[in-house]
């Protein structure tokens, strides 16, 4: 058939395909910058820390000053140093958890979505079970029974309870990819399943994998901080949660020692927000419907454009923008009249 006729549907979507690389998204860039900052701190934190986090001094419960930037604890420990040292623990645990959990999620989610049928039924049931069983209480009882858990065990347990959401998202995305032309073609060409998954499917899941990774990193930071706050993880390993554990146990909250508890929570919030921002960027990349129209609200408002479904904005531009056409149409109008006279009937 003629190529003109083959295409059945006309897309209403714009032909703009420029903003596809999610890393170019402003939100993602800001998020990456903040997260990168904490990564660096995690790397060099223990070396640049002005004091040892455990070192007690006579300067007890002092508010922030030039000597102690974020003040001191009840026993005169430097809180700024505690946070600097603690960043490493948070980063190590959360990133390794993210990697392991993403790996499990990809293995189960992609297999499930790609194979379909019975395998899919079983694997997605398995995924949903892990999703529904509350993770934190499970971690708490395991840690509580284990005692003396090392970093490795912590990472493993958080990963094992945190992969399910990612697997679910990856499964559905794989399912939609499976029916696309290029995957069908690869299968029709007799490519092995392995090759199809690794060369056709996985490259197209990059964005989802990234968002799964970020999601699990976020969740594991929350879990780690919570676990060390409630003292399930030995408080001798410094992390932001440990700072809060000591703050709570020393009554910092009732005595108004805000510099003790506020910064640690804000660190968690800042990292969490940075990860959320990166994920927003990825979401907009994956789901174009969420994408903003490339202009901020204030600027649109100035031009009186209110983009919404069902009421296309009308902004009459100056006639000069319409190229030469207005001139021509007036010419052709006069011609129309003329030719009407000439061509009376047919």
């Amino acid at each position: 058939m003629a190529q003109v006729a083959v295409q059945a549907t006309e897309t209403l979507k714009p032909a703009v395909r420029k903003h596809f690389v999610f890393l170019r998204n402003t939100k993602s860039i800001v998020g990456l910058a903040i997260f990168g900052f904490f990564l660096v701190v995690g790397l060099i934190g223990p070396w640049i820390a002005p004091y040892s986090p455990d070192k007690v001094s006579t300067a007890a419960s002092e508010p922030p000053s030039a000597i102690h930037w974020l003040g001191t604890t009840q026993t005169g420990q430097d809180i700024f140093s505690q946070l600097l040292v603690g960043t490493r623990g948070v980063m190590v645990v959360s990133i390794s958890t993210g990697i392991i959990a993403t790996f499990i999620a990809a293995a189960i989610g992609v297999t499930s979505g790609f194979l379909g049928g019975m395998w899919d039924e079983m694997l997605s049931m398995f995924t949903n079970i892990f999703l529904v069983i509350p993770g934190l209480p499970l971690i708490i009882i395991i840690m509580g029974m284990m005692k003396e858990a090392g970093v490795g065990a912590i990472v493993l347990i958080i990963s094992l309870t945190g992969w399910a959401w990612g697997a679910r998202v990856l499964r559905s995305q794989t399912m939609s990819l499976r029916s696309r032309d290029f995957v069908e073609a690869s299968r029709a060409n007799g490519e092995t399943r392995f090759r199809t998954i690794f060369f056709e499917i996985l490259p197209n899941l990059t964005a989802i994998l990234a968002s799964t990774f970020i999601g699990t990193v976020t969740a594991s930071i929350m879990s780690l901080v919570t676990l060390s706050y409630i003292g399930v993880i030995p408080p001798s390993d410094w992390s932001w949660g440990t700072v809060l554990y000591w703050a709570q146990n020393s009554g910092a909250f009732t005595q108004g020692l805000w510099w003790w508890y506020a910064p640690a929570g804000l660190c968690v919030a800042l990292v969490g927000m940075s990860l959320a921002l990166i994920n927003f960027g990825i979401d907009e990349f994956v789901n174009p419907r969420l994408r903003n129209t490339g202009m901020n609200a204030a600027e649109l408002k100035k031009r009186k454009i209110y983009p919404r479904i069902g009421f296309t904005p009308v902004v009459q531009k100056a006639a000069s923008k319409s190229r030469l056409k207005t001139v021509h149409s007036s010419v052709s109008n006069s011609r129309l009249v003329a030719s009407e006279r000439n061509n009376d009937g047919k």
Partner: peptide, 18 residues
């Protein structure tokens, strides 16, 4: 809302108490 979804629940609780 992003901020509130990024902080641990218990920390908000602690701040609320304080």
């Amino acid at each position: 809302t992003t901020f509130f979804s990024s902080v641990p629940y218990f920390w908000i609780a602690l701040i609320a108490i304080a």
